[in-house]
Design a binder for these strands. Structure first.
Lengths: 343, 343
DNA sequence: CTGTTAGCGCGTTCAT
DNA sequence: ATGAACGCGCTAACAG
């Protein structure tokens, strides 16, 4: 039952327990065992009656480290980001670290400010889902000895590791599935790949593999998510080269395309629809939208593990993978029975 | 161009600039004007070449405050929570505060730990979306002088303000809309109202108002989101007392019910469907699901304003509202043209 | 095993 | 206008 109005301090506890700050400090640190049982209980009682809690700021100051991890997210409203933040927070907590998350809303300027802020709070490690290309700042951070991982998006000219989806594999899986289901013409739709390496990797792989597999591949870049109605409409007729499917580069695009399909009256299934990123509503849209779910937990755990390895001098560095395989979630949007003569 | 490997400190800057810590401190504080222009530029240069950044931990230690706000979220994967976190972070940042978010996954035990953690980091204010009833801890926190607001969920026996939706108004708006659209029998579906005051308020208001308005009101409490198929099926027949509609207490329920409707083959529209909480897919489900959107920005801004008012001694306390009105988003799920003889 | 001492990086008197 | 000295709450040497 705390009675003090202001926060109790180490020294007050010591006084009340009739001992010194050091012993109290030890009690709350990893050296508790070195104290006499009697002393331990005395301290415990004193701390309890005062409602004492160590001040982590002060602790961090001395050199014990802040026990803080920082995370920079480009768009916290993106379900993928939410899932990763959730996973990272759990993993960090499990290792005794707390997380301070900053959202940049895809604004490079905010990104710089937040980066400054994070370092000002002495975070011990950084997980960066970049919006822009803050290579200078990040380089400085790395040089200052703070470990750092990139999430999903690479940054040119920065020698840092990227953790995220295995984009090439994802595209391959998508193509294999679509071809297997009888789609012969595929329209790949993506937001602008500028400044987002994951998008670039997917786009490039698509172009390359579509050719290899001999399917008719087209690509469409959405600016501000407004899709070209004519392009889509023409594509939906799929009279030229057999049944066609639209492959969406991420969740945002899947949402935009689903809207378009509905608006233009394009039937989902006859014209295939598939997306990277699993969303809770994909099973609700009749007849269900096939997706490639990202293993967000694996990704977030890997990111945290990476940081922790670096912090522990990578002594017993547990091996971890940077590229993670997606999980194929097949639904009705890609399992339409096409007229055999087209297939 | 920072060259130092470890983080530069105030004193190093002072040395390089040929001055004292105090002046450098002033330069980075609110007293910059008191320095000679020459000195200012000298310090600026020195700080720049060293890549100096004030250590916010140390700053907070002295009494300057941590400039940190804490937020406890029951379920960070809930879109409503995400929206509020986003808004809170923006508002906090706009006022020079940073936010450290903790997710409890609806686990009272984690909640307690996170609460301890947050206070240990000397947060200056707390926004609590409670999972359990940590009244004792929160009381202690309030007594220690740290301002605190409850978000969406009240805590019994705790004299703290709650900011969130105007639940009574929301229910009233929903009922008015449904009745106006010709639905005469309404099934209100909610998750367990235990430990979630918002749910209680909505449920109670529904029961009360349904009676007042003379509509046939039933309620159904979902445990683990598994809905009673029989109840629903029977309800869908709506042969007894005219067309029926299902009103969902929140986004989770809307998701669960939409699934049920599809699984049981209940047509959306003929049997109405409406939900509290706007979700991005509600417009995608044919024929669109009518919702009551929560004004998440208003709510989050109000929460931050409240905290800041308290911190500023509520000097020029700007007035703010605790209960916020929802916005009705009408879609096809509640605008079906019923057979007149039933209406 | 325990207490004493000295900083960590910074803000803040109080002199100059 | 500027600097010297002290202390915030804590951990880490170093004694005893």
């Amino acid at each position: 039952m705390p009675v003090t109005l202001s926060r109790a301090t180490l020294i007050e506890v010591a006084k009340l327990a009739g001992t010194s700050k050091t012993s109290v400090s030890r009690f709350f640190g990893p050296e508790r065992e070195r104290l006499t049982p009697k002393l331990q209980t005395r301290i415990a009682e004193a701390a309890d009656t005062l409602g004492y809690q160590p001040n982590l700021m002060a602790r961090g100051l001395k050199g014990g480290g802040s026990r803080l991890l920082g995370m920079l997210v480009a768009d916290i409203r993106n379900p993928f980001s939410v899932a990763v933040v959730h996973g990272v927070e759990q993993a960090a907590r499990a290792h005794g670290y707390s997380l301070i998350v900053c959202n940049t809303d895809n604004d490079p300027e905010q990104e710089q400010q937040h980066l400054r802020l994070l370092t000002a709070y002495q975070v011990e490690g950084l997980i960066i889902n970049a919006a822009g290309q803050p290579e200078a700042q990040l380089q400085a951070i790395m040089r200052s000895g703070v470990p750092l991982v990139l999430l999903d998006r690479d940054i040119r000219q920065l020698d840092a590791n990227v953790i995220g989806l295995d984009n090439a594999l994802a595209i391959d899986m998508a193509l294999e599935h679509l071809v297997q289901q009888g789609y012969r013409s595929i329209l790949y739709v993506s937001e602008s790949p500028a400044y987002a390496s994951a998008r670039q990797e997917r786009l490039q792989r698509f172009t390359q593999q579509a050719a290899t597999l001999g399917v008719k591949g087209q690509t469409l870049i959405l600016s501000n998510l407004a899709a070209h109605a004519p392009t889509l409409k023409a594509f939906a007729k799929h009279s030229v080269s057999g049944p066609g499917a639209v492959l969406c580069a991420n969740g945002n695009v899947t949402l935009a395309m689903t809207r378009r399909f509905q608006k233009l009256g394009i039937a989902i299934g006859p014209t295939g629809l598939m997306g990277i990123d699993e969303l809770e509503w994909c099973e609700l849209i009749t007849p269900g939208i096939t997706t490639l779910a990202q293993p967000t937990d694996d990704i977030s755990h890997a990111a945290v593990s990476y940081l922790l390895n670096q912090l522990n001098g990578s002594a017993q560095a547990s091996p971890l993978s940077y590229r993670h395989a997606p999980r194929l979630q097949v639904r009705g949007s890609t399992t339409f029975k096409h007229d055999p003569k087209h297939v």
